[in-house]
Computed example of a mutant assay.
Amino acid sequence: MAPVGTNSFVLTVLFLNFFYSFVSCLYFNIGAAERKCFTEEIPDDTQLTGNYRIQLYDKHRDKHLPTPQDLGIFVVATDPDNKLVLSRSYGSAGTFEFRSWVPGRYQICLRSSSQRPLFPGGLLTVHLDIRVGERTNNYTKIAAEDKLTELQLRVRQLTEQVQQILRELDYQRLREQHFHEVNHNTNMWIFWWPVARSLYVVAMITWYTNSW
């Protein structure tokens, strides 16, 4: 029988995968020299894809303007060890992607790739949809390229969903192990700090006593 915690995590992952299919892309405004960053918890060997589109926004007139041809975004992504995994300029609409090589928290930062300042009151509106793992697959394209039947496609989709859940479980175990290590170290520090402080006080009293 699987542990209760494992069963709960599997159910959580399944519910998240279900609700993710209904989440629309977010959007935000940034200035010409501003940078916006996000973090994503990703297992190892997992694909991340960001679909984006930018618009020029005039906050004084509260309306979007035609997007200039030279307007784009610059994307920088770093892994949990702060190592660079992506650093590239993109156009006004498109897709950026990378694959994780270690599990953990990845940071994704976006800013304007244009060197020229925007007009007063001008902002960039970024529409962004980040997909991780199995959700990055285009099953319509896969079915056409591999000539899969509807049943074969469904089996492949379920297989990849199970593989993604297993990667999530492995990552959860690593997080739990790290939490236990931090908790153990904290408890040891709490235990030994009063002891060390008491020994220090005794040593100082002994030194002052002998000095007399």
Rank of each mutant, 00 (worst) to 15 (best):
R173D: 05
S87G: 03
T206E: 08
D129Q: 02
G133D: 03
R197G: 15
G5T: 15
K59E: 15
T78E: 08
N29L: 14
C109M: 10
L174T: 00
T39N: 04
A2Y: 14
A196H: 11
W193M: 07
H180G: 06
A77C: 14
T206G: 06
L174D: 01
Q69L: 12
T136P: 12
C109L: 05
G133Y: 02
V132G: 02
L56H: 00
P117T: 00
S113L: 05
L110M: 13
N51M: 12
Y106M: 01
E145K: 08
V182R: 15
L124V: 07
G31L: 01
Q115L: 11
C109R: 07
F18Y: 13
H127D: 04
K141G: 06
G122C: 01
V13Q: 10
V182I: 11
T6D: 06
R156W: 02
Y200D: 11
P117A: 00
E150M: 08
L65R: 07
T125M: 03
V75G: 05
F74Q: 06
Y171D: 02
S114H: 01
S112R: 10
Q164T: 10
L71R: 03
A143D: 00
F22Y: 08
I42C: 03
G72A: 05
T149D: 10
N51I: 06
N137P: 00
S100V: 01
